[in-house]
Design a protein around this nucleic acid. Structure first.
Lengths: 211, 211
DNA sequence: GGATGCAGGTGACCGCAGTCACCACCCCGA
DNA sequence: TCGGGGTGGTGACTGCGGTCACCTGCATCC
């Protein structure tokens, strides 16, 4: 991970966009790095720039009365629809965005977004796609919460993590899992044990393994 | 409500859009009426046209294993983002759209949408706004489900209905409410009684009154 | 008339999961 | 070396709400 906002680097990372749009974003965007654990956006904050993730991974939460619920992850070539809509509607953010894996982010100044949207259909498409994806993710989430019991939800979550990190053994504390699922630590411990007894997971010292 | 696709009628109803876009939509759209109770879109169905509601009200559900959850309402000048994304992604619908109040709908053929999106920024904005609204609605919904007890959710639902219909006395069966909230009829009966005892609602013969 | 169906109403039961209290363990720093 | 912080683990309790069974009342239709 290089520090300098190298143009070649940016061109490489933005390959998925048409050339003229690449140029505009590189010219006007602001490249920044964030270490794991950093908070990009807090609840109630006004959004001055829309993040486009180039490397690493962000985690987006809804926060209600000190309780959290994991909404989605932002991976490279993706952006944050909540920031986007906060800009379009000129309203403060209602969510929290945290860095989960050291991230390189291109910050797009919110003032110019409207103009770009008019000129570059691809940018429209990008955000439509993002919205669509987030919406269906959220939908699946709510279906899980409403119609499925915790063991199912937990298993689905673990499978997601496995896909996301690419590692078979998940290094997560029970507390972390509980926070992501909006549950409690003891409950996760108990449910994990139950899943292990059923043979769906293995609880090793190196981490949790989904069978 | 007139039957003929009268151009004056359409122009009046589409006033909220810029003139050239109005013309295009009127030329290519297909005006249709649906009676209350009709189903516009079923789960798993492919979407051939995106509905733009001119009158009445649609109700959109997610359906999972015979259980339902109310997602949102579509009112005049609004559209259905789930149809929209089904078109963009060329995937079948995962939701159900029903007519709740006799509706007049302008059906926009999905094939031409892409082209229109390129030419009319206003159409982009329309759908972005829709996405944004639906997303935050869904978010509030999931927060309700996760972090609030049924009495709160029920009360929020009743207040929504009151705002939506404009009538102080709600004509809903307990079964309907239960379906919308993904709960059971007896539970709704019980909870309504509880709310009445607390003085938050009044259960009259003419309907439910939120205090 | 009886049959059927839908509305609301109610008591009993019970399972899931959230909460509390309290373990033991381990690592680290003072 | 002793504490303090973080882990995971467990038993007991509790309440919410989903389910079942069964009731009444009312409208409709043979």
């Amino acid at each position: 991970m290089k520090k300098k906002p190298d143009k070649d680097y940016l061109l490489r990372k933005l390959r998925f966009l048409p050339l003229p749009l690449q140029e505009v974003l590189i010219h006007n965007g602001h490249l920044e790095q964030f270490p794991a654990g950093a908070t990009l956006l807090r609840e109630g904050q006004y959004v001055s720039a829309i993040p486009l993730v180039l490397e690493g991974r962000l985690k987006v939460y809804a926060e209600v009365e000190a309780k959290r619920l994991l909404l989605y992850y932002i991976r490279p070539e993706e952006s944050c629809v909540m920031s986007f809509s906060a800009v379009l509607e000129d309203r403060p953010s209602s969510i929290v965005a945290e860095v989960e894996e050291d991230a390189v982010v291109l910050l797009l100044p919110s003032g110019q977004i409207h103009e770009w949207l008019r000129h570059y259909p691809m940018l429209n498409q990008l955000f439509f796609r993002q919205y669509q994806r987030r919406y269906t993710e959220l939908l699946q989430n709510i279906e899980q919460v409403l119609f499925h019991r915790l063991p199912d939800r937990l298993l689905a979550y673990l499978n997601d993590r496995k896909r996301l990190t690419g590692q078979p053994k998940l290094n997560l504390t029970h507390r972390q899992i509980a926070e992501d699922l909006g549950s409690a630590r003891e409950v996760i411990t108990r449910t994990l044990k139950k899943l292990e007894a059923e043979g769906s997971v293995r609880l090793l010292e190196e981490g949790i393994e989904v069978v």
